[in-house]
């Protein structure tokens, strides 16, 4: 068992995975356990960033780049704006629903157990992956050829969503 961990840690990419995973989980756990909302957002940013690192490990540089831009950048900022727009007593009160939280804990652990069991008992024989010379170029080519309709649909969705967000959030008296 120890030797297998030693083997695992002898590989550089494995060490990187280990560190990133640690950060990701740590950020998530902190997000749950912090009491102030701003701290939570900060903790989650760590998770987003370490996930970007994991994407790099998986040879998905463009996705990692987008992850940093959108999640760590845009969404986090959006959340902070949201916090500023709403009044928070900043203190996440102690849960007053013990039964709810106990059942929720059981449910989450149970779901993880099911997923873990499925992962352990599935056989994924990896195929060969050719990342190509330039990941960004390859993705761009695909986006503008094979997935061009989806891409355009996405742009329409984004536009609609943002216009909708503006209309919803704007003041009634305007």
């Amino acid at each position: 068992m120890l030797s297998s961990i030693g083997d695992f840690l002898s590989n550089g990419s494995n060490i990187a995975f280990f560190i990133f995973a640690l950060f990701a989980i740590g950020g998530a756990v902190f997000m749950i356990s912090f009491t102030r909302v701003v701290h939570m957002v900060t903790a989650l940013t760590f998770t987003f960033l370490s996930l970007a690192g994991l994407f790099v490990l998986l040879q998905a540089e463009f996705v990692a780049f987008v992850q940093v831009l959108i999640y760590a950048g845009a969404i986090t900022i959006l959340m902070i704006f949201g916090i500023m727009m709403t009044r928070h007593d900043n203190e996440e009160e102690q849960p007053i629903r013990p039964a709810h939280n106990v059942w929720l804990g059981i449910g989450c652990v149970g779901l993880f157990a099911v997923l873990f069991y499925a992962i352990q008992h599935s056989d994924f024989t990896p195929g060969t992956f050719d990342p190509g010379m330039d990941n960004t170029l390859a993705i761009g080519t695909l986006l503008y050829n094979q997935y061009v309709i989806l891409f355009e649909l996405m742009s329409v969705l984004l536009t609609v969503a943002f216009i909708g967000a503006v209309i919803i959030a704007k003041r009634e008296e305007d």
Partner: peptide, 20 residues
């Protein structure tokens, strides 16, 4: 990867509408 890009886009839209 392309699929995850789309997911990120949808997540961004969802976050915006959700905050609104």
């Amino acid at each position: 990867q392309i699929f995850s890009l789309f997911t990120i886009t949808v997540a961004a839209a969802e976050a915006a509408v959700g905050i609104a």
